[in-house]
Design a protein around this nucleic acid. Structure first.
Lengths: 141, 141
DNA sequence: TTTATTAAAGATAAAAATATCCGAAATAAT
DNA sequence: ATTATTTCGGATATTTTTATCTTTAATAAA
């Protein structure tokens, strides 16, 4: 459904959001440990998230990353990494596919996409009760 | 959402199903022309569909492909090419993700997946009014 | 039986996604 | 100021997906 990079991005954002102690920034090592991801690749994704203004970073000792201080939807995260295609492009890959010029399954999948897009746009990072510390939900294993 | 190979597979199946003149088989060239796909790669996908018993093939002059003579759901096609992952695996890529051991967005996406799976399982190839000949729907451009 | 046609199968190539490595820049602490 | 730490940026490597090429096998028609 989402690319591996996007999966990592979602995990990163959820993890960083779950530990709202505004003082301490989480470093690359801490993050990769928390979400069990390859370090160097994760660094690249973190860069993308910073450029997309979803994360704020600080270099140097006691540097690291934190979530930008504003409401962020899951859609923003997905689009930052995978682009619009997951919520907009044709299931059969047609360049042009619309109600006026539909593929044979257009109508059936419009609703699927709308449903997905709905979940992605209405779910804000702050809505997610991670329960990570309490062992209620998990980002690895 | 689906791989390129899977998009081609769906187009192939819809196209072949749309021209139910049981006598004439459609050849590779005809198919690639109808769905605008790379010839050699399409041949590989056709092979997979034949092995998965979704298509029947015949070699030699006037040989080609036709849809197996039984009800076929979109899910069968998708699973034949992309495997179960699209309807079963965790959005965040966790090996183990279930109601008992969920990722933080498990509940929100269960419903999305169920909806998608529903469309894929309930839609049979024969349900799709392609309207290809009539220019009502399209498999290319 | 020979030939032309078509799918099957295996090897190879190209492109994209995933992942790593290394030097540079920033910055807090010493 | 120097040093240690940490992100940034670019280059490179690996893996997977997408795509091509070439030979073989089957088979219908001549």
């Amino acid at each position: 459904m989402f690319s591996k990079a996007c999966e990592y991005a979602l995990k990163i954002m959820i993890y960083l959001n779950s530990k709202r102690e505004d003082t301490h920034l989480a470093g690359l090592k801490e993050i990769t440990k928390a979400i069990d991801s390859p370090e160097a690749y994760t660094a690249k994704i973190l860069q993308q998230l910073v450029r997309s203004k979803l994360l704020i970073s600080l270099r140097g000792p006691s540097g690291g990353f934190k979530v930008a201080d504003r409401p962020i939807t899951l859609l923003e995260i997905v689009v930052a990494i995978d682009g619009e295609k997951i919520v907009s492009s044709c299931v059969l890959g047609l360049e042009q596919c619309s109600a006026k010029h539909p593929c044979p399954v257009h109508q059936r999948f419009v609703s699927v996409r709308d449903y997905l897009k709905g979940v992605l746009t209405t779910t804000k990072l702050s809505d997610i009760e991670s329960g990570l510390d309490e062992g209620i939900s998990f980002l690895k294993m």
